[in-house]
């Protein structure tokens, strides 16, 4: 079974993304920051990671840096799901191997779900 990981520090968003994405045919895990995400990635190989950028403890860029240094190359598809449409953090995340960038405030639940399903197939 495919596995996806949602990394999001906001509890409400983490819960609502879980409600939306739990409708797909895959196993869904969540993490509240980059550090938690690294711990989960040490135990499980995820097919897709939806990664927020601005998070406490360890942010998205921090996660990607560690992820790349521990595994050599990011083995999972990482999609940035943040509210940053430009800026240094986003540029850094993309250069660290993130695959694409989605804006949280622009995605409806249906669009989010269909994007995830599409990316898992692609």
């Amino acid at each position: 079974m495919r596995k996806i990981l949602v990394v999001e520090d906001d509890t409400t968003l983490r819960e609502v993304y879980t409600m939306i994405l739990s409708r797909g045919p895959y196993k869904l895990d969540t993490a509240a920051n980059g550090k938690e995400a690294l711990e989960k990635c040490a135990l499980t190989r995820y097919d897709l990671i939806l990664l927020d950028l601005m998070m406490p403890i360890m942010d998205g860029v921090g996660f990607l840096e560690h992820f790349a240094s521990t595994t050599g190359t990011p083995p999972s598809k990482v999609i940035i799901l943040s509210n940053l449409s430009s800026g240094q953090e986003l540029a850094q995340a993309m250069s660290l191997g993130a695959y694409k960038n989605l804006l949280k405030a622009e995605l409806s639940p249906g669009q989010l779900l269909s994007t995830v399903l599409y990316e898992l197939e692609a």
Binding site: L13, V16, M19, R23, S108, P109, G110
Partner: peptide, 15 residues
């Protein structure tokens, strides 16, 4: 606001 959008979106989209 993004949270509200997702919850209302789920209601609107029949989730």
């Amino acid at each position: 606001a993004t949270g509200i959008k997702q919850y209302l979106g789920m209601l609107l989209e029949g989730f």
